[in-house]
């Protein structure tokens, strides 16, 4: 640790020695514990046998290429679903955020210059619309995504619309994530200093133009790390495809397990795959965040309170954004 935290003093020689001894003892204890509590029981049950691991790790195993072919297909399906879901959630989410901001500004408008009943009607209408979108957002944000996917997959055919399972998954994920993204963007836009919108109005931009040209680009910039984190969420959530028989990684894993009877081994491999990809993604989110906070700091880009100072050094060295 070259950087030091503000929470404690730099350890002195005695403290360092104590830490070293303590760590060594703790490590030994952990290893012994792992040996007796994890390795021994698993080994007794033969979970480390090559018969179970071979098809996954030994290229000379007769099933190795078949198994990895299948896992590859599954992973490809996972990525396809995730990519489609994130793109459509971004599009829908942005539209939804703009819609909500617009409706909100509409409800505040007085519609002067129109006949009184008409202006009341317009105001009532915009309030109603605003409330409806708000309710939709709350409902879809409050429902588990499993349930949304399940409802989409069972509900659409009920009304005579049927697609590939891929699309049920994408639609289900989009419904949930677009609402989340809309909220991220909306809070980004609302967090901008009021001067931005006022200045835009002063130079004669319409509310829609203001949103499109002034607010949205800034909100995207500020919220980019949050948006990338949402990508991690989407990628993890594609694993729910197994509920509707979409052949993503976990579902393929299930099929492989059915043939080879090595559930723990297959799941370990799948878990590692997810961890690696998602870890890379969250690293990317962090990198983007750092570049953004280092990037051009004109008066117009209010870097939300500079990343809270206290433990910044640590969060960077230990590899996790806030």
């Amino acid at each position: 640790m070259s950087q030091q935290s503000v929470l404690y003093d730099v350890p002195g020689p005695r403290q360092r020695r104590l830490t070293l001894i303590g760590s060594a003892v703790a490590t030994v204890l952990l290893l012994v514990g792992a040996y007796f509590l994890i390795y021994r029981p698993l080994n007794d049950k033969g979970q480390f046998s090559m018969e179970l691991w071979g098809p996954l790790v030994d290229p000379s195993n007769e099933n190795f290429s078949l198994v990895w072919d299948r896992i590859g297909t599954g992973f490809q399906n996972t990525l396809t679903a995730a990519a489609l879901a994130i793109v459509s959630s971004l599009v829908v989410g942005t539209l939804l955020a703009v819609l909500r901001i617009q409706l909100k500004s509409l409800t505040r408008r007085r519609f002067t210059g129109l006949a009184t009943p008409l202006s009341y009607l317009l105001r009532g209408l915009s309030t109603l619309l605003s409330a409806v979108t708000r309710v939709c957002v709350e409902v879809f944000r409050g429902l588990p995504v499993v349930i949304t996917i399940f409802f989409v997959a069972r509900g659409f055919p009920e009304f005579g619309v049927s697609f590939d399972t891929l699309w049920y998954l994408v639609i289900g994920l989009t419904i949930y994530n677009s609402v989340v993204i809309a909220e991220i963007l909306r809070s980004g836009m609302e967090g901008l200093p009021g001067g931005q919108a006022e200045a835009a109005a002063a130079i004669g931009l319409s509310p829609l133009q203001t949103t499109r040209m002034i607010l949205l680009p800034q909100a995207f910039r500020i919220m980019l790390p949050a948006l990338i984190s949402q990508l991690v969420v989407v990628l993890k959530d594609t694993s729910l495809g197994f509920i509707i028989s979409y052949e993503e990684t976990l579902n393929i894993g299930k099929q492989i397990i059915g043939v080879l009877d090595n559930p723990i081994q297959v799941y370990v491999v799948i878990a590692v795959m997810f961890i690696v990809v998602n870890y890379a993604l969250s690293k990317l989110a962090q990198y983007v965040q750092r570049r953004l906070s280092r990037g051009r700091k004109t008066a117009g880009t209010p870097a939300q309170d500079p990343p809270p100072a206290a433990l910044m050094s640590q969060s960077e060295s230990t590899g996790q954004g806030i």
Binding site: P11, T19, K236, L250, A271, F274, I275, S282
Partner: peptide, 30 residues
């Protein structure tokens, strides 16, 4: 994760990285 002892920090960080990046389905399975 914020403690002064590096191995403890490593344990905390490792834990968070592993469990945050795994689908819950996989955790449930394990």
């Amino acid at each position: 994760r914020i403690s002064p002892v590096p191995p403890l920090r490593a344990v905390g960080t490792g834990y968070v990285n592993v469990f945050r990046n795994m689908p819950l389905t996989v955790v449930m399975f394990f």
